[in-house]
Design a binder for these strands. Structure first.
Lengths: 154, 154
DNA sequence: ACAGATCACTTGCATTTAACAAGTAATCTT
DNA sequence: AAGATTACTTGTTAAATGCAAGTGATCTGT
């Protein structure tokens, strides 16, 4: 009924904690990934992203990401049905987090990622981040990476 | 041999996705943070960490982190009740992720982190990661950072 | 040696969140 | 005008989380 501390009470002022409160769940960063490295822009894109998010969860996460200023959505001018989602600057600033996540996962878990490519990125993270930022600035829709998931092996 | 990550099947082979399946929740990375930057080692430490995790969830996350090889726990030789938790190498390899998470949170959200310190870390992430790794190797229990949570407004 | 505290957990239960299946309104295509 | 597409909602069920209390092993002080 009555919430004692309001709707969004921060558990602590630690930056790590606060980051996790914003996108510390199983889906939010996958949406950011799709926007950042795969060049996805629509609800439909995210839905068929390979991991199988449910429509209500996707809608909810997109709303949350917009509320926290990481993503912005606007109506497509050529097609009134479509909403085009795009990272904000705050969103593209997650590129370093995304990259380190990618590197860690590729180095420590069995993924479909080609080791050479990962090593390359690990050697020069600054360049990768800068390239991501460049594409974002120029609205370059081309994926940043040849898609790493492979044929979705299961 | 089929690429199985255990009884749970992977949603996709993307490294980002797999990373998130391992620690993509609100608590796992906070435990890693406590181990990595605060020098915490015991159940009790994590419990009084400031964010208020419940005992059952904490036990569950510690188990999961151990199963995925990020954390190792062993009995304290001087006190048979205690279990001392420590990051594995796979765990300390999360330092870059943690750091970028920290930087992003500090730059984009309202946190208690001193801006100067954050800027310093952002300027030379390699050094910070190397220092974290050094402390881990030498079992240096000293916190990596003057604690950033501040007075923890709760 | 014993009482009481401490530590690392469990267990049971209520509440919250996520997953699944359908449906809907607006818009576009033919 | 019919049918398809797009971006969602709305139920309903399953799972995860949060909370309070309890358990057993071990340590500490007397």
């Amino acid at each position: 009924m009555t919430r004692k501390t309001g709707p969004h009470h921060s558990r602590s002022g630690c930056p790590v904690n606060i980051s996790l409160e914003v996108f510390g769940d199983r889906w939010s960063l996958l949406i950011v990934r799709d926007l950042m490295v795969r060049g996805f822009t629509t609800f439909h894109d995210f839905l068929n992203s390979g991991e199988g998010i449910a429509t209500n969860i996707l809608a909810n996460r997109l709303r949350r990401l917009q509320k926290s200023g990481i993503v912005k959505g606007e109506k497509d001018q050529n097609d009134g049905r479509r909403v085009i989602y795009r990272l904000t600057e705050k969103g593209i600033d997650l590129a370093p987090v995304m990259l380190e996540l990618l590197i860690w996962g590729a180095q420590h878990e069995h993924t479909g990622a080609p080791a050479v490519l990962i090593a390359e990125m690990a050697k020069n993270p600054r360049a990768v981040v800068e390239e991501a930022r460049r594409r974002w600035r120029q609205r370059d829709p081309m994926p940043l990476l040849p898609w790493l998931g492979g044929k979705n092996a299961n």
